[in-house]
Design a protein around this nucleic acid. Structure first.
Lengths: 112, 112
DNA sequence: TCCCTATGCCTAGTAATACTGAGCTATGGC
DNA sequence: GCCATAGCTCAGTATTACTAGGCATAGGGA
């Protein structure tokens, strides 16, 4: 799949993934791969900078796990602002998907 | 709408638009605006270079209209290779849209 | 013991892409 | 004559995800 296709939608995917509950970077990568049936296999160099960007924007909050419990991990969680942003991203996606679908035989990408 | 969202999908939209029949650049811009209900209002600086790129790739063919019939226009038409590419773009889009939809409550962007 | 793999995080540099902003021509209405 | 619209072009810019590396720890197998 053309990597350019993802542009502008990565944040949406990350926010939606973390809406299920806090997770650390590596787990996010695996969750995305699983949930997309392998269609989206995003490298670490894509995920980590994106998480940093979202945290800088105030949409995520991160905490390091205490070193006592195994490996040190940085756990990301959605902030209230992130939840609001997710709503906007979802609306934008639906508008965009409907627009593109209008060009492809008007057939929305419904598996049904 | 975030302009980055379009990245990687512009070619799909252009090929799909020209699948309805040959058209010149300015008409393509208007067709896209109409067909997307105004959601996609793409400037000339976006469309023309993209058309050139697709022509260079062999997916489009262009002909200048004869100067006798009013203004000179450059009419673009889909090549056989362009038709094949459109099919691939459509399949990619559907896979991508299904994957992203899986993150947004599993709800595909169907207005119904 | 040593090495390899998986887990886990980070970053500098790169390439691709759409947009901005400007310029050019011709037609037609006022 | 002047301006808006139609119509095409191009140089430069910003954003974005990816590449390709590096670092550290834990556990299993040779």
């Amino acid at each position: 799949m053309n990597p350019e296709m993802l542009k502008g939608h990565l944040d949406t995917i990350l926010l939606a993934t973390l809406a299920d509950g806090p997770a650390h970077g590596y787990a996010v990568i695996q969750a995305i791969r699983q949930r997309s049936d392998g269609s989206l296999d995003l490298p670490e160099g894509t995920i980590y900078p994106a998480l940093h960007r979202l945290e800088l924007a105030g949409l995520l909050r991160s905490d390091w796990t205490s070193p006592s419990e195994g490996r040190r991990k940085r756990v990301y969680a959605l902030t209230p602002a992130g939840l609001v942003a997710l709503g906007e991203h979802r609306a934008n996606w639906q508008r965009f998907a409907r627009a593109v679908g209008a060009f492809l035989d008007g057939a929305a990408p419904c598996p049904a």
